[in-house]
Design a binder for these strands. Structure first.
Length: 564
RNA sequence: UGUCCUGUGGUGUAAUUGGCAACACGUCUGACUCUGAAUCAGAAAAGUCCAGGUUCGACCCCUGGCAGGACAACCA
């Protein structure tokens, strides 16, 4: 089937594009742009990472450069192959290609070690035997300068020997570290002799037991960027204070080639959402959600299962923009992006989620008509599907009111509406059960108003419907926002963000859907007309359809009602 | 009582570098409609954190405040 692919030109440049444009003009990066997306494989990617992925790969695309995928795997105690796999799947799913440039910081361990030896020989690094607690105590606070380590002025030969023995495994964890010799009095904490290597006798997912010393982030990252020929190393704001250190290492190494430059941007925040890995993990562990790919999670795998498309997420990343100021994006924008994509591309179907029986008294018993229905009015060339119509139907319970308010365009005693793709009907009377609940709505139909026939008869409302005889039963999972307040992380001391969990974030209902969706497979999107966008969940099996609600249609009627 | 970063409609991002603020989402009207969707037309909404200064002219430059954020893992 044909699909709509939205593209939009962008006039002005964001601050990253401006920097790159200038660098290109001045040839300061050799006329090249080379970025990287550097996840640590210790968890699942979320929508915030998607922003970074779109930024890094997008910038490379826009300026005819390249973008690497690099796993920042310098801490063997937290990282696993499982995460490497999920990250690759997510980046690929988002639509980006790192070609053969799949790298791991752990590939550079040997090179990094040689760099470290160089710094030791230059007198710019030393082995320190203080405990973690002592180092911490000596470091001071942001407002109070630190004190120098007693080991700071050891000779080069001794440092070399100690470093060598650290690598060989002669020392237990925590007994020594290699530190850069910078300035314990620096107002920047990160410059107070930062740790470069720590001893960890741990098995690494890629290097196995080859190493028992592992580089710290600050020591590994910039040098990895350099090794890969990265020109613009784009990261989030919290690394801003690390930049002097990033540059210090690169300078101290007296490197022959072009040095990368670190540029920071403000991370994504979303209303009604938490984004920190720790908090997301706690939701999984406490079983508040069913896993990392629960459709309520802001993880890429969760959004995918929810029914978000790669195009919608890319569009979102484009529209939120990039800057250096803290921001909180309204989820409404994300929802708008998926609606825009799905409106243009998702086939329509009729589904009734909360049925009430409707009987057309003057329609021949036993007769079934196949009504042609447009698959997608935005893509008329995709044709029509046939929907069976009969004397007894299901319509949505909320589409009928015995005592309707004014401007209620739906069904009510004496009122006329169109059944979409079929006939105009008039409600004659209702039948109630013992509890006073409406069990049948009786109507008459006007044969000359059959869809497609010329008829002057006009009605204000159009209802969707389903024929119980032919409809398929389905499980529908109606998802809503996971949190009930815009900023769930804003809690008072002693309170927990989980107090803001939305108790109604998932409702499971039984529904009836028209037959033509029957042979669709997991991941297929639909618009249930007048209701919302849905996607077939991987749990779906033949004979047991499962749909997830991605997002409801905009609804100005219930909005009007609510505002009363 | 340290260092660094950031302050533009409700939200986010612009203003081609000093020429009286634009776009998107949202909101509100109205049109159209066999989806109360989509689409189309229109409106309200900031005078750019504050106070000075430079200038014919400041969101943009200078000075001083104020507010918010980041930084004290052998995490990334």
């Amino acid at each position: 089937m044909k699909e709509n692919t939205p593209t939009e030109p962008k006039a002005s440049l964001n601050f990253l594009e401006q920097i790159i444009t200038n660098d290109l003009a001045s040839k300061s990066t050799g006329g090249k742009v080379h970025t990287r997306f550097p996840p640590e494989p210790n968890g699942y990617l979320h929508i915030g990472h998607a922003k970074s992925i779109c930024l890094n790969f997008g910038l490379a695309q826009k300026f005819n450069g390249k973008c690497n995928l690099r796993f920042d795997d310098t801490n063997p105690t937290r990282e696993e192959q499982e995460y490497v796999d999920s990250i690759k799947e997510d980046v690929r799913w988002l639509g980006f290609d790192w070609e053969d440039r799949e790298y791991f910081a752990s590939d550079y361990f040997e090179q990094l070690y040689e760099f470290a030896v160089y710094l030791v020989k230059k007198g710019k690094a030393y082995v320190c035997a203080m405990t973690a607690e002592e180092i911490s105590a000596h470091r001071g606070t942001p407002a109070i300068p630190g004190k120098e380590s007693p080991w700071r002025n050891r000779g080069v030969e001794e440092n070399l020997d100690l470093l060598d023995r650290m690598r060989k495994g002669e020392f237990p964890d925590g007994s020594h570290v290699l530190r850069a010799k910078i300035d314990m009095g620096s107002p920047n904490m990160h410059m107070r002799d930062p740790v470069m290597y720590r001893i960890m006798h741990a098995h690494h997912h890629r290097t196995g037991d080859n190493w028992c010393i592992y580089p710290m982030y600050d020591w590994a990252h910039g040098q990895s960027d350099y090794i890969e020929g990265i020109t613009h190393s784009i990261c989030t704001l919290e690394f801003e204070v690390h930049r002097p250190l990033y540059e210090w290492f690169l300078n101290a190494l007296d490197l022959p080639h072009l040095k990368p430059r670190q540029i920071e941007f403000a991370r994504l925040n979303l209303t009604y959402t938490v984004m920190s890995k720790r908090k997301l993990l706690s939701l999984v562990q406490d079983k508040q959600v069913k896993g990392w790919d629960d459709p309520r999670m802001p993880t890429i795998s969760g959004l995918r299962r929810r029914g978000y498309t790669p195009a919608s997420i890319r569009m979102f990343a484009d529209r939120v923009g990039v800057a250096k100021r803290e921001n909180v994006i309204e989820v409404g924008l994300l929802e708008h992006c998926i609606r825009e994509d799905l409106n243009k591309n998702a086939p329509r179907a009729m589904a009734v989620l909360n049925p009430v029986k409707l009987i057309i008294d003057n329609y021949p018993e036993g007769q079934v008509e196949e009504m042609p229905a447009v698959i997608n009015p935005e893509l008329p060339e995709n044709g029509t599907r046939m929907v069976p119509f009969s004397r007894t139907l299901y319509i949505e319970r909320e589409d009928f009111m015995e005592n309707p308010p004014k401007k209620f365009f739906r069904l009510a005693p004496g009122a006329e509406v169109r059944l979409k793709y079929a006939y105009i009907i008039r409600c004659e009377h209702v039948v109630k059960d013992a509890d006073g609940e409406i069990s049948e709505i009786h109507c008459t139909y006007f044969p000359e108003t059959r869809s497609g026939l010329p008829s002057d008869k006009k009605v204000k409302g159009t209802l969707h419907w389903v024929c119980p005889e032919h409809a398929l039963e389905a499980e529908v999972r109606i998802y809503d926002r996971l949190f009930s307040v815009p900023e769930p992380e804003e809690v008072e001391d002693g309170q927990d963000f989980r107090m803001h969990l939305n108790p109604d974030s998932l409702k499971v209902v039984k529904a009836w859907v028209e037959p033509y969706v029957g042979d669709a497979t997991a991941g297929q999107h639909y618009q249930f007309e007048r209701n919302g966008y849905y996607v077939i969940d991987p749990d779906s099996k033949t004979g047991h359809l499962v749909f997830n609600r991605t997002v409801p249609l905009r609804d100005s009627w219930t909005k009007v009602e609510k505002n009363k």
